[in-house]
Design a protein around this nucleic acid. Structure first.
Lengths: 344, 344
DNA sequence: TTGAAAGCGCTAACAA
DNA sequence: TTGTTAGCGCTTTCAA
């Protein structure tokens, strides 16, 4: 095995206690002794055993981060934020991808307990969110992206309802009337955004025309394709709104597939052919700026969400008994050509 | 504190050893006893303490994954592959982002030692790669993306030289002659791809016209912008080749900025205005397929690279003394409109 | 300011 | 098939 604290103690001619004090920089040690110990550690190439420290001290200095999939740019960025903050505080991060799969999720929650994580940042699937009770867990939990008062967990979310309303109103202001909405069915987020969309439509005396789908591009693509191809009574939408980055991607593909550039526009004026529907959605993912015309989106302050979650978590770790807190961050509307017809 | 194995033992009326045997599913236990123990665990909600198990067993069941930045889609996907494989084998993953910063990198390598990781998957910066010696570390190391024989570490890489040559030949076949190359200066990968590019140019009796830049979009954008604006002798490039996804993005932005759609084409035929340069590069990142025309790229088998790295690592953990192995995976040329003028 | 010794929760000899 | 017991490497009383 590797070197132990005892080896360092012998080399430096002190007790293990003293070495431990130098290691954790805690407790009185004469400067000359400290230097001697540090020199011994350096020379021997000693590395303290993290598992032993955790076991003995009871402090794992570990944050659990449970999300659906890091490949979703939203979570990629959140995980970077969380990791930056955590490592800066001398904490590790255990990252788990549930793939919206309840069994995986249950397994990882169990893992969090076995690891005795100091705290967890958690983005539950819809079903799990409804059942989750923070008080059943022996560590603090901060929810991100999705929140639920009954969970009794701190949370940081977007102001989903307001952002969706804002986005819908933007389309209505541009003259669109028949706005087809795509919402994710796996989280509370999708429902909140749906509510905001409905609010805006209602305020203009318009009915909702929306579906809930799996939060994957394929399902969204199919739904949009079907909606565009629908015969019979339903009028063709003149705008499409997708409630997250994955759905937006699917919608974009469907429009392209239909050989309709997602260019903006109203129904054709007399003498002009009808234009393709406008497109907008949530999440300022890289591609939305790169395609032409760019896609109008609600940008989430993604890094900030991760940072904020870590801050809430740290504060609760320090003071476990403060009342539940929720941070609601605003989304930012970024208007691009896909909803205005103005190609930058 | 939480429940201990002793509590389970008491509840089930057996010794701690028996509980341990049930836990690790290892050692003889009568079926009826096993069931009784499992029932007790279930009822009490017992969770074994991971730190204690690791300390005692000496097996941390932990993989270290050290990359530059998970936000780079290449590493996002690699990390998913590694995590999928690892968790399936009951191992955890510790993910570290070095940001190509030598100090962070050194800190994380130290962390790997303190965690007593079972093995490490490592994408070193160029400078670190030259100095790294696997035999100085007490655990097996598999390098990804970047490799160096002197490191004595197993490695899985792309066939960089062949892929770059292939991509360059593709441009040459389409009639391009003045091909400006952008290569990353932070890794051996950039140099290998540069060599492949030079091979292809030389074979056609052409000189290289390339620069090495920081592997960030901003630097690439600037370099391409400068090259396009160059006055004096240097002819305007009729094609641009970028050696990774970040550089490709920068080049794309530069072309757009120059109000030149990255549309393909040769120098203008008589009577036609000169077309914008062709664009191609490495990494089949999502946006390259979404922009129009799509970008011609070398697709790396990214998930497979991660999977393969975990396989090599597992095998070396099982047999530490087998000779060093290198897996070289082929890249796949995906031809899109940016190099052919055929807009799908 | 230092050291001796107990013990964190678990696993693995060894004994029965 | 089961139990007793000695540590894994560290931190933390407690006493000096």
């Amino acid at each position: 095995m590797a070197l132990r604290i005892k080896d360092v103690a012998q080399a430096a001619g002190v007790s293990v206690t003293t070495v431990s004090r130098v290691l954790s920089n805690n407790g009185p040690v004469r400067d000359s002794v400290r230097e001697r110990v540090q020199a011994a550690m350096q020379e021997l190439g000693y590395r303290p055993n993290a598992a032993a420290r955790r076991l003995r001290s009871g402090d794992t200095a570990t944050i659990g981060l449970v999300v659906s999939d890091v490949r979703n740019p939203f979570f990629t960025e959140v995980s970077r934020a969380v990791e930056d903050m955590a490592y800066r505080q001398g904490m590790r991060v255990i990252l788990c991808n549930t793939d919206e799969n309840p069994e995986k999720e249950a397994m990882y929650l169990r893992l969090m307990e076995e690891e005795r994580v100091t705290g967890m940042i958690y983005s539950p699937t819809r079903d799990a969110a409804e059942r989750f009770r923070a008080e059943h867990y022996p560590f603090p939990v901060v929810m991100i992206d999705r929140a639920d008062a009954a969970s009794h967990a701190d949370a940081v979310t977007l102001d989903n309802r307001a952002a969706a309303e804002r986005l819908t109103l933007h389309l209505l202001e541009r003259g669109h009337r028949c706005i087809f909405g795509l919402f994710g069915n796996a989280s509370t987020t999708g429902r909140e955004r749906h509510a905001g969309y409905c609010d805006a439509m209602q305020r203009h005396g318009l009915g909702a025309d929306a579906v809930f789908v799996e939060p994957q591009p394929a399902g969204a693509q199919q739904a949009v394709g079907a909606r565009l191809a629908a015969r019979g009574g339903a009028p063709v939408p003149d705008a499409i709104l997708a409630s997250n980055g994955l759905l937006l991607l699917g919608a974009f593909r469907a429009l392209r597939e239909a050989r309709q550039t997602p260019a903006p526009g109203l129904h054709g004026a007399p003498g002009h052919p009808p234009a393709a529907p406008a497109l907008c959605g949530f999440d300022n993912d890289a591609w939305t700026e790169l395609v032409e015309p760019g896609i109008t989106v609600i940008a989430q302050p993604v890094y900030e969400i991760g940072r904020c979650a870590m801050t809430l978590l740290s504060e609760r770790i320090a003071q476990p008994d403060i009342p539940r807190r929720t941070r609601v961050l605003p989304g930012e509307l970024i208007v691009r050509g896909s909803s205005t017809g103005i190609v930058a």
